[in-house]
């Protein structure tokens, strides 16, 4: 474990807590894409298949349980909770996430570290995580006013993968044989997808104006 990876995991945890806080306290999911939340639940479900078979560390297991629990409970809140579901913007959140899942699955079948069920699922989860934010970014473009919690949520979600990139660089130089092209490329693509959001988020913060993305 290195400081970059710890910072990345904590930032990722913060993003989830910010979202749960928003949904649980103000009983609203306005501006949040259910499609993205469903994709994240699928990402964790396919990435943490080894949670009970390969023990890495207590930290690793606890964090996996937190990410699995939070992502599925957010989907449950947005689909089932009578108050929260009313604030879900079904008409605007129309990204066909099936068109993200299928290419990722096909790519995982072709590009993986080993052609085993677990490794294909692991590669699938990495490709899917890279694009899972797209429905949320599309929704942000459509809903003009972005409330602070939603902006913070997306910012933290993008920042966590940026920290991970520093972690991969650090591990590449400090650990022999640490080479994971699949992780590195999908992680880089994922971070780049946030680039324009970061640009507008930083500018809104610098000029102290409300965050809004150009149409």
């Amino acid at each position: 474990m290195n400081i970059f990876r710890l910072a990345g995991d904590m930032t990722h945890l913060m993003s989830v807590l910010v979202l749960l806080l928003k949904i649980h306290t103000i009983k609203s999911c306005a501006g949040i894409s259910l499609k993205t939340q469903e994709l994240y639940a699928l990402v964790f479900a396919t990435r943490y298949l080894d949670i009970f078979t390969d023990f890495i560390s207590v930290y690793n297991t606890i964090m996996k349980l937190i990410f699995l629990g939070s992502s599925f409970s957010i989907v449950w809140y947005m689909r089932r909770h009578k108050l929260v579901r009313r604030s879900y913007d079904k008409e605007q959140d129309t990204f066909r996430h099936f068109f993200l899942v299928l290419p990722c699955l096909l790519l995982a079948l072709v590009m993986n570290e080993k052609f085993t069920f677990k490794e294909v699922m692991w590669a699938f989860s990495l490709y899917l995580e890279a694009v899972a934010i797209l429905p949320q970014l599309v929704l942000l473009q459509r809903t003009k006013n972005i409330d602070n919690l939603t902006g913070q949520y997306v910012f933290l979600l993008g920042a966590y993968r940026a920290f991970y990139i520093f972690n991969w660089i650090y591990r590449y130089f400090t650990e022999p044989h640490y080479v994971h092209w699949i992780t590195w490329i999908s992680g880089l693509v994922q971070t780049l997808l946030y680039a324009d959001f970061f640009y507008y988020y930083f500018n809104s913060w610098k000029n102290n104006v409300k965050l809004h993305l150009p149409a």
């Binding site: 080894d50 890495i56 964090m63 996996k64 990410f67 692991w122 991970y164």
Partner: peptide, 10 residues
């Protein structure tokens, strides 16, 4: 076991 690749990151 050598067969499996251990992914230690979240």
């Amino acid at each position: 076991s050598p067969g499996i690749i251990l992914h230690d990151e979240l």
